[in-house]
């Protein structure tokens, strides 16, 4: 007799639990246009905004005079765990006859970057920053290597020096 009661109560409870589950999916079905959470990505491209902290790519901000802050000290290159940064610098002699390095090319290979942020964190002159760009796919691998400094850009002179 107990077996029979268990048989029917088990069946009854089972059906109740199944109906509960169907209630959840059914609820979302009938409220569907409101509850949809997916983003329509290529359509919302114009309105899509990333968070300020978003790590899209490493960039080198330039000011309106096409000047950057990079002193070609190579600390970012040393700190990069993947070797995705390469600094090409040239030696220049200034008016006082002192030799110093000047940035020629800041090569950044985004294909090897793991977005750890060490280059930006350790940069002594705050020359690097995170960019918001995230559409990085390319057809060929060599396009991943980007030159971060603009064509013909110069080192920003420190204020108060002149």
């Amino acid at each position: 007799m107990r077996g029979l009661i268990n048989y029917f109560s088990g069946m009854f409870n089972g059906i109740i639990s199944l109906l509960k589950g169907m209630g959840v999916t059914g609820k979302y079905f009938f409220t569907s246009p409101v509850t949809i959470v997916t983003q329509q990505y290529p359509e919302n491209r114009k309105t899509l905004e990333m968070f300020d902290a978003f790590k899209g790519e490493v960039t080198m901000p330039h000011d309106e005079n096409n000047e950057h802050k990079c002193t070609a000290c190579s600390i970012c290159q040393i700190n990069c765990p993947n070797g995705s940064i390469e600094i090409v610098s040239r030696d220049v002699v200034n008016d006082e006859g002192k030799k110093r390095k000047e940035l020629d090319k800041h090569l950044y290979n985004i294909g090897m970057c793991s977005f750890c942020g060490l280059c930006i964190k350790t940069c002594p002159s705050n020359a690097l920053a995170w960019g918001q760009e995230f559409e990085h796919s390319m057809f060929t691998r060599d396009k991943f290597v980007k030159t971060l400094n603009n064509e013909g850009s110069k080192l920003m002179q420190k204020k108060g020096v002149e």
Binding site: T25, G26, Y28, F29, S32, T35, I36, V37, T38, Q40
Partner: peptide, 13 residues
């Protein structure tokens, strides 16, 4: 479409 609406998705569009 039905399963997409149940799963808070849009489905084929």
């Amino acid at each position: 479409k039905v399963c997409a609406f149940m799963q808070n998705r849009v489905g084929p569009n």
